[in-house]
Design a protein around this nucleic acid. Structure first.
Ligand code: FES
Ligand code: FES
Lengths: 151, 151
DNA sequence: TTTGATAAAGATATTAAGGTCTTTTATTCT
DNA sequence: AGAATAAAAGACCTTAATATCTTTATCAAA
């Protein structure tokens, strides 16, 4: 659905917004190691987000990436739009040139509802909503190998 | 969700299975033009499907691709499995190494239901179901430019 | 004001998806 | 048998996604 890059972006932003992280700057190396994402790749993604004002950064010693006043209220759809664009919600499931509800493909009706639901979820959820789930221990930004292999 | 290639595959099979098409062989050029898919690319895809027994073909003059006894009863999930593999339903939305309901990411619960719904739809729908929708004029395999630009 | 730390930027590499072109093989018709 | 036809096969190309590496700009502290 959304690209790997976009998932990395969301996880990066949420990481910076976690209760124990939000008051300090974090170097790209720390973030990348914690989230298990290639360092330089994540760096480029976060730079994009800085340019968009979704997060902030400063260079130099004790520099790093950090949240700003906008960060936690950013709706996820804004991140998706920044990285993947909204076109991902307008592609035909069967690879036709366009998706059209007037001239639909045989899977259009089956899946259009699902696609809208996903879109709406991205519109309604904010970074702060994901942060809450992490902070209360409902979910995790990176895979815990021990948990994952449990039955 | 599914790849463009997979969409092409489904459209190719459905084309061969349409009421007015199912009794004859169809050359790759005809199919590709009708569906507006690159000819040689579609050729490779259909060859895959022949190897899997989902459709049939014969070489030589008056040869072409055609349906067999299995074709119209093929569940869509079988085509998806053949082309994309079932792994596409098991990826984490946020690009973690694995999706895990024991150790879920903050979007897991939001979207897992949707993903299962899509999977089940692919399990339940057969080629014949899509054929019906086309035959009664509910939907279309290729984009009708006139329709598409209408209001 | 120099040094070291760190993000920014940009060049390059790799991989996978998507697409094109050419040659081979099987079949039919003359 | 030979020519024509069409799929099969395989080599190759293009583009986009993903990832790595190197250099530059900026800042803070000594
Ligand atoms: S999804 Fe195929 S036309 Fe909308
Ligand atoms: S979707 Fe991320 S863990 Fe399941």
């Amino acid at each position: 659905m959304i690209s790997k890059t976009c998932g990395y972006a969301i996880r990066g932003i949420v990481f910076l917004s976690l209760e124990q992280n939000k008051s300090t700057k974090h170097g790209i190396l720390e973030i990348a190691e914690d989230l298990q994402i290639p360092q330089h790749f994540l760096g480029k993604i976060l730079q994009d987000l800085v340019r968009r004002g979704i997060i902030s950064s400063i260079k130099g010693p004790h520099g790093g990436f950090f949240v700003n006043s906008k960060t936690i209220d950013t709706p996820l759809i804004e991140v998706v739009e920044a990285i993947d664009g909204l076109g991902i919600f307008k592609k035909c499931f069967l690879g036709r040139e366009e998706c059209s509800s007037i001239n639909p493909c045989p899977l259009h009706d089956e899946f259009d509802g699902c696609r809208s639901a996903i879109f709406k979820t991205f519109e309604n959820l904010k970074i702060s909503d994901l942060v809450k789930k992490i902070d209360i221990g409902d979910s995790y930004l990176s895979l815990n190998k021990e948990f994952a292999t449990e039955i």
